[in-house]
Design a protein around this nucleic acid. Sequence first.
DNA 1: CCGGTACACTAAATCGCTTTACAAGAGAGT
DNA 2: ACTCTCTTGTAAAGCGATTTAGTGTACCGG
Lengths: 341, 341
Amino acid sequence: MSVRKLTSIKDVAKAAGVSVTTVSRYLNRTLDLPLPTRTRIDEAIKSLDYRPNPHARRLSRGRAETIGLVVPDISNPFFATLVAAVEEEADRRSLAVSLHATLNRPGREITYLQLIEHNHVDGLIFATNHHDDGLLAPLINRTGKVVVVDEDVPGALVPKILCDNENGGYLVGQHLAANAHRRVLFVGGSPEMLSAHRRRQGLSRALNERFGDDAELTAYAGDYTVDYGREAARRFLREDRPGSAIFASSDEIAIGLIEVFKETAVSVPEDVSVVGFDDVSPLHLFAPPITTVRQPVREIGKRALEVLLETNWQDPGSFASEELLPVEIVVRNSVAPPAKP
Amino acid sequence: MSVRKLTSIKDVAKAAGVSVTTVSRYLNRTLDLPLPTRTRIDEAIKSLDYRPNPHARRLSRGRAETIGLVVPDISNPFFATLVAAVEEEADRRSLAVSLHATLNRPGREITYLQLIEHNHVDGLIFATNHHDDGLLAPLINRTGKVVVVDEDVPGALVPKILCDNENGGYLVGQHLAANAHRRVLFVGGSPEMLSAHRRRQGLSRALNERFGDDAELTAYAGDYTVDYGREAARRFLREDRPGSAIFASSDEIAIGLIEVFKETAVSVPEDVSVVGFDDVSPLHLFAPPITTVRQPVREIGKRALEVLLETNWQDPGSFASEELLPVEIVVRNSVAPPAKP
DNA sequence: CCGGTACACTAAATCGCTTTACAAGAGAGT
DNA sequence: ACTCTCTTGTAAAGCGATTTAGTGTACCGG
């Protein structure tokens, strides 16, 4: 509270009767000292309650000991879980996490990417949820030290940690096919988004395996939000139900769908089957419990930090990679065979 | 990627033909310059793509332009929303947010509080979810620049932003009383926690107003978690249902209760009524939709940052305060009159 | 007695910015 | 003509670490 000056390395050096250099090097283990000297320094540190000034250290070393985390929206349960996983892992390694939400404000992603260039953070874990308009990839390639998670940024030559979207779609397709759904509506992001594209492809593959050319796949594209789920549900009803089952490409969308179906007395799964994606909300308590694909969210976060720290960023080109983490389908009660198949 | 050196203020000064001081003071608006000089500097900055090195700035100013945010668990929807609100508000003010989760690891809260003492951050927004064992309050008082949110830390003489827990409990009590529930189980935190204490008091007040001495209030105490909700539900059944209604002091607890009731075929609200607290999960889609008390989570986060920045921390003692934000009850479908009142 | 090798340290530059204190010149008032 | 006050700057000392390039002493083998 008072403006007492904090103890600096200089005070420690004086108290221990050595030079500042010695203390610094001892602390950074670049100098072996004989026991007596060591003890003197240790005691000085303890009695003065010395702790290195992080800003000075960062300026001097040119590193921030901080990693940046950019996500679309923290309050979304999916990203909240991702953030939690990254923070936990960073804390284990004594790194601070600087958190940034883009909230779909254009230009924000770019602003945050520039944090790296100016040494604000040592690296960035980056999640977007919309299609790159062409600015992101070059910037990412220029700045480096970025790990892309959850949604691909095409053209970015950096490590990417994604879930196995194709297989997720395929598992849903199989489950729907097993329940005799031949006509399916896919509600997801625009096809330029790799996640949406792959999920849809997996879905399509499974449906075709079962029904061949008789499979009918319709798609609506929009945001991964509750709002868009509502909109999609209304459109689905307005357009006379282009499908006996709906595969929502996120739980949020599924929640929106279900809200509207509830209001309009369309019952799930009797009138229409619904499957979600992510499994981060308490879908098992819904009426009915919602079948969904579980993403290994925490794994994604953890792995992203590992990769960020393990990658040798000196050797550009060496590190463009894509790691696919496995998904699983969690079957609950929102899928039933259609009334008239 | 390459080790190109970033442009520093020195380069700008040289390019503009002025001194470093001039550039710095111009940028920090402590110096008015005539248009021509201004233009030269602006152009130098633009053409060199200069951006101040944050570490140098922080070292020099002794401020971090960063605020710390300490919460028990980020993946919990309540805290996720709080984090989102704080981040949003901080971003508006060009402050970075350094995020830390305690995850109930003992000692972590203290570690993070010390971030302030060593200038790591300029201030801290602090949320705990368990009873202080006596170490926290003195440390908070010593470090200052802390705003306590959500849960009280008794003895901490700093601003506190809480919700109106007593009224929350009262509203629930009224609603339950109106549905003829005379015997109520309160499942919440230990009574040493102010939130639990006040909610329970409000509940008790409403019940007494209606039933006088006939009101029967039982209490279970534990964590605000789904796990504890499950445990409480099992105990409730084992102990022969000490109440026709349960007031869960968080949505998480309510979710745990409902899970177990679902498994054991105890139906809500026919067999037992349930009310939650927080309203951050999609409780409206549950079966049945859960009645709960809505906390103004985002408001709490936003207000906390405002208070953190507006408080005059030079004048200790002046700022111990408690701000209560209003709550409202969201009536849905999980309360019905008891079978045998 | 000399050169070499460890050992135990250190002086001083550096990181990039802020800030205090001061200065030179121009105009203004008396 | 002389002092005063602006205006428009500047030099240099921090901030608190890290790090490079040494230094002085002691011992040791030949």
